[in-house]
Write a protein that binds this DNA or RNA. Structure first.
Lengths: 170, 170
DNA sequence: GGCATACATGATATGGAATAACATGACAAG
DNA sequence: CTTGTCATGTTATTCCATATCATGTATGCC
């Protein structure tokens, strides 16, 4: 589901996911950014954590916790659920990885470094996931929240539909 | 996960959204609306389905599938997972119930009758859930989708935070 | 009525997601 | 060296979800 058609579109903003890109480079640079950010902020990007991030970057799609666990086992790490969940917790808490609630699965963040409130487009045919930015608290939801006195701390925004590749094939 | 600490519903009022209301009446009228809509559209609101809807309306908060299953068992229905999931599928497909992805749980729709794309406010302290309307496809996400050719069919919008009651208590 | 069909339910079994609880190891600070 | 903290590992369990097959029930058609 990665690489294939799709012309280059305004690259540097919002979208990564349904477009071609230099994959090798994107994995390496994302890992480098993660390492540097961890160093700066005193976070420990340990081997398990790094491995999980690396494989999510490599796959470039959402992986379930048990798929991650399988790969950890193959790589010689612990293979019980908490091993994966703890690494994922760390990565999610620090913004390196996002959880896709709709799929109960995880993807590497496409915009590392930036603090953001992500939105996702999920293809129901091929499970490809693209990350965009959202500002849900500024629209109708934000108004509703203010009206009743609800304090928004975090938002989940996920659009389900069909990606350009799958539309084309059909 | 959804805590089972409901004090008996002796009162006629409970929290919808985060506001008081005439609970008895709201359950009855919602059931009536559902029945009438099913009749109109040739849908079969069978006993299991009706029971599930009724108990979600009664509880007025998100219930997990197995909590629902427990109640079905008590009411003399089948007690295996598919029984609950099939009823829930029917109710969700027809807009009587929404699934809260963040909680892997289900709530009765607060705006029956209207076709809508709901948004939710979920209190992380007490798990209360309020429903609002959203139009995510009209904002930044919609623009991003159009830009890459992603066809949005459905959206999940869930805000996590603290409800007015819990804010007050703190 | 008898029959075919579609749909609803029931029961079994299994797979995947997530966490509780407890033990060990590595390491830095005092 | 001891203590505290954080990361990892392991066991066990609970909850969420679906595939599969069998049975029942309403409906419409001949």
């Amino acid at each position: 589901m990665t690489s294939e058609t799709t012309p280059a579109l305004a690259e540097d903003t919002a979208l990564v996911g349904f477009q071609e890109h230099d994959h090798e480079n994107c994995v390496d640079s994302a890992l480098a950014i993660a390492e540097s950010r961890c160093k700066d902020e005193g976070l420990r990007l340990t081997p398990v954590r790094r491995k999980v991030l690396e494989m999510l970057l490599q796959e470039h799609r959402a992986l379930g916790a048990y798929a991650i666990l399988d790969r950890l086992r193959e790589a010689g790490f612990g293979s019980q659920p908490p091993v994966a969940y703890r690494a994922l917790d760390f990565l999610v808490d620090n913004g390196f990885v996002h959880k896709i609630e709709r799929l109960n699965a995880f993807v590497a963040c496409a915009h590392p470094g930036a603090t953001h409130s992500p939105a996702f487009m999920i293809c129901r045919k091929c499970d490809a996931v693209a990350e965009a930015h959202s500002a849900p608290a500024k629209g109708a939801l934000g108004a509703a929240a203010r009206a009743v006195g609800f304090e928004i701390e975090r938002t989940v925004v996920e659009a389900e539909g069909v990606c350009p590749d799958c539309t084309e094939k059909a």
